[in-house]
Structures are given as C-alpha cells and as structure tokens.
C-alpha cells in the first residue's frame, strides 16, 4: 500500500463524495418529489425573509441598520448554515444511529465514522435554502461600497460562516453520544446561532455580544465582516481587527469540534450505548 500521502488524506473526501452521489442518484429516481421538496425548501426560507421584510414595514432601521444591510447579514448567515446543513446536516441523526444500532454497522467499516454519518442521506434539496440566502445576500451586496479588500473579506465571510456552522453542527450533535434523544439541544446553537445572526447584534446587550465573540464565536459568521464591508466602526467599541479575524476562531472551532466528536465516539466505545 505505497500510496502517496495526499491521496490518502483525500480518501475520506472522495468516499464522502461517493456516498453523497449515491444518495443524489437515489433521490433523483423520484424527480417530482425531489423538485417539489427543493422548491418547497426555497419558498420556506423565502417566507422567512418575508417575515423580516414585514418587520421593516413598521420600522425604518433595526439597531441602526437598514433593510438592505440586514439583508447582508441575513444572507451571509443563511449561506453559512445552508452550506453546513447541505454538507454535514445529517450529523444531527447521530442519536438515531445510536438508537437503531446502525452506528455499529458504520463502526465496522474502514471509513472514518464522521464521514459516514455526514454523508448518510445526503439531500441535494437543501440547495433550496442556499439559493434563497444567495438571493438575499445579492440584494444586501447593494449596500456595500466595493473594493478589492472588501471583496476578499466577503469571500472569507461566506467561508468562515460555513465552517463555523459546520463546527456547531458537529460539536452539538456529539452530545447525542451521551444522551441519544437530545437532538433539540443542538438546535439552540445551530439554528439559534443562525436566527441570532440574522439581525444586527446591536439589538442585543453588550455582554451577550462579547460572549458571542469570545465564547461561542458566532459573531464572526457575519457581524464583524459585515461591519468591515459597510465601513462601520464597532458599535460596542471592540477593536477593529476583529472584523477580519474570522478565520482564526473558525479554525479554533474546528479543533473543538474534532475533540468533542472524538470524545463522543470514545464514550460510545466504552459504553456501547
């Protein structure tokens, strides 16, 4: 087995792609159902933004931000959770795998457990949400006075947002290794983090914003990069470098997610339930 190292490192990704493609093929076997669900997902999330729009029917600005600026925040957060949900949203099912015993089946296969759990039941229709968020983000981009640096930060923002939500999904799904039927607990952080970052953080108390910066760093999903894109000073007087620091907490979160996941698997291996 004298394989070059990069090929081996990419093996899990390739396998992920293989499993995902198989699920896509299976779902496309029922095209009517597939398209209704995809379009349905688009409109579900579209109505969600209509809610924000209705709020703005009664007010001109929320926490000092206009509708288009809120759209910027909303779109970035939405793409982040959308991409994470598309790629690894299935990790939420880990408690179910524990309960039904399918986790054991995955454990006796020569592929990392995380790859198998994430690729299981890959649902292409989750693209609907990403499409909606992209449309909202495109509208929000109208509020930005573009420069090369801002373009770079915008790209970094979308990547950071995806990685942060990716980590939140994995970290809090791991809790189900300890209590299998607590999947809703994770929603508070994943979907909660999404809803929270749809609004300007100026509507929240400063203490909470500090917590969202230094403890559970969801503020980096969109808040800080958007301040940069809009050329605004930090309303809470926090340092300006935070606005471009996003990748750092994202990397840290990756480490945390990996550790918690491993601890979860260890726990499972030492209790078998």
């Amino acid at each position: 087995m004298a394989e070059p190292v990069p090929a081996r490192a990419l093996e899990p990704v390739r396998l992920y792609g293989r499993i995902a493609r198989m699920w896509i093929r299976a779902s496309l076997a029922y095209p009517v159902s597939f398209w209704t669900m995809t379009i349905g997902a688009f409109f579900t999330t579209a109505l969600d933004f209509v809610g924000v729009w209705i709020l703005f029917g009664t007010i001109d600005g929320l926490g000092g931000f206009g509708l288009q600026e809120v759209a910027l925040l909303y779109g970035a957060s939405g793409i982040g959770i959308g991409v994470a949900d598309l790629l690894i949203g299935s990790v939420e099912q880990v408690g179910q795998h524990v309960r039904t015993g399918s986790l054991d089946v995955m454990l006796v296969r020569p592929v990392p457990l995380l790859v198998q759990v994430c690729a299981d039941r890959f649902q292409l229709r989750r693209l609907g949400r990403i499409a909606q968020a992209s449309a909202v983000l495109a509208y929000g981009f109208g509020a930005v006075d573009w420069s090369p640096a801002r373009l770079l930060v915008a790209i970094g923002m979308v990547l950071t947002a995806s990685v942060v939500f990716f980590c939140l999904f994995v970290t809090f799904a791991s809790v189900q290794f300890w209590t299998a039927d607590s999947s809703e607990f994770a929603n508070a952080f994943t979907y909660g983090g999404n809803v929270l970052t749809q609004y300007p953080l100026t509507v929240f108390p400063g203490e909470l914003v500090k917590m969202l910066t230094f403890v559970l760093p969801v503020a980096f999903v969109n808040w800080y990069p958007c301040l940069y894109l809009l050329g605004r000073d930090d309303p809470f007087g926090l340092p300006a470098w935070l606005q471009v620091a996003g990748p750092l907490p994202a990397l840290l979160l990756c480490g945390v997610a990996a550790l918690v996941w491993r601890a979860g698997v260890r726990h499972y291996e030492s209790t078998g339930s």
């Binding site: 209590t179 299998a180 039927d181 607590s182 999947s183 809703e184 607990f185 929603n187 508070a188 909660g192």
Partner: peptide, 11 residues
C-alpha cells in the same frame, strides 16, 4: 422522553 423534553425546553 425526559431528555428530549429538557433539551427542547432549553431550546
């Protein structure tokens, strides 16, 4: 479903 109820309340 006690754990489910507790985590749901939290959420």
């Amino acid at each position: 479903y006690r754990a489910a109820t507790l985590s749901g309340i939290f959420t």
